[in-house]
């Protein structure tokens, strides 16, 4: 006798919420679709092997060449360098916060880490450009400090917060019984942390590092301001261009095949990031299971 069928408003809102849920999926599909549509023409024009492995990037030359090996290698080296520098420091900081710091001190340091992650990337870029780059130039007696090394330093600082917070969460999730057993067998607290807790949290720690790699590969503005922006093959103190900065610095004046090639770079970058995301998902799932 009572209402069996939902009122129109109820049905309408149900539809609205379903639509909202599906928008997220639609956006991912749209972004992928458009990047592929925009990126494939230049790939077809130059040929995938030549595009990925070509060492020469001279889009505005008489006979333009589109080889993105310099950008690819720079991005890989940059991310690797940033992780090599940032991961140990971040991990140690996470251990400090999760295990050895007095709670009061940890409560003071943790907001600092969060704040570090909230600083806009252009601000990192500005400080890098005016403080770090001159310092690097003076320290190593270079004609110009802007280059891969400065970029790695800036990236290392920028990925610190994500490494610290994800690793700390992983360390905290380790069951206390493990540590109790180790302590009862006579290991000191430090030994317990490094021999028992860290290995048990390795999945989460690996996830934090992968997250850091993703951040480092995707960062554009800060790197744009400190890397020098010349399409050189990467070397520690040379001016270089990353995948991201190639797009950011050339998009405004590019046209024709050059512009299409920049979209292809974005496609390559997107592919990289998707790879990193899948890996991250795997690691987090494994930790959960």
């Amino acid at each position: 006798m009572m209402r069996r069928t939902p009122r129109p408003l109820e049905r309408l809102m149900g539809l609205f919420f379903s639509a909202c849920g599906l928008t997220a999926v639609a956006f991912v599909l749209l972004i992928s679709l458009y990047l592929i549509l925009a990126g494939v023409p230049a790939l077809r024009e130059t040929g995938l092997p030549d595009f990925l492995l070509g060492r020469q990037w001279s889009p505005t030359a008489q006979r333009p060449e589109f080889g993105i090996a310099p950008f690819l290698l720079t991005s890989v080296y940059g991310a690797a360098g940033a992780v090599l520098l940032g991961a140990p420091i971040g991990l140690l900081c996470a251990v400090f916060l999760a295990k050895t710091a007095p709670p009061r001190l940890a409560a003071a340091v943790r907001p600092a880490v969060e704040l570090l992650s909230g600083i806009p990337s252009v601000v990192y870029g500005l400080v890098g450009m005016l403080v770090l780059v001159p310092a690097v130039r003076r320290c190593f007696r270079l004609p110009d400090g802007a280059g891969l090394f400065s970029a790695i330093l800036v990236l290392a600082v920028m990925i610190l917060p994500s490494i610290v917070s994800v690793s700390e969460a992983a360390l905290r999730a380790v069951p206390p019984e493990y540590e109790a057993a180790s302590l009862a067998l006579g290991a000191t607290q430090i030994e317990t942390v490094f021999r028992v807790t860290l290995p048990a949290a390795s999945g989460g720690v690996a996830a934090s590092v992968v997250l850091g790699v993703g951040r480092a590969i995707g960062e554009a503005m800060a790197v744009l301001m400190v890397a020098g922006n010349a399409a050189n093959m990467p070397s520690l103190f040379k001016s270089v261009k990353f995948l991201t900065t190639a797009i950011a610095s050339e998009m405004s004046y590019s046209s024709g095949l050059h512009r299409q090639a920049l979209f292809s770079i974005a496609l390559v970058l997107f592919f990289f990031i998707m790879l990193v995301n899948v890996l991250l998902n795997r690691l987090l799932k494994r930790k959960g299971g």
């Binding site: 997220a24 999926v25 956006f27 991912v28 972004i31 990047l35 925009a38 993703g214 590969i217 995707g218 960062e219 554009a220 991201t244 797009i247 950011a248 998009m251 979209f263 974005a266 970058l269 997107f270 990031i273 998707m274 990193v276 995301n277 991250l280 998902n281």
Partner: peptide, 15 residues
């Protein structure tokens, strides 16, 4: 999809 959106770098969003 939401996780993927969170991982996409901002320069790609720009493009």
């Amino acid at each position: 999809a939401a996780e993927t959106l969170a991982g996409i770098p901002s320069i790609i969003y720009g493009l």
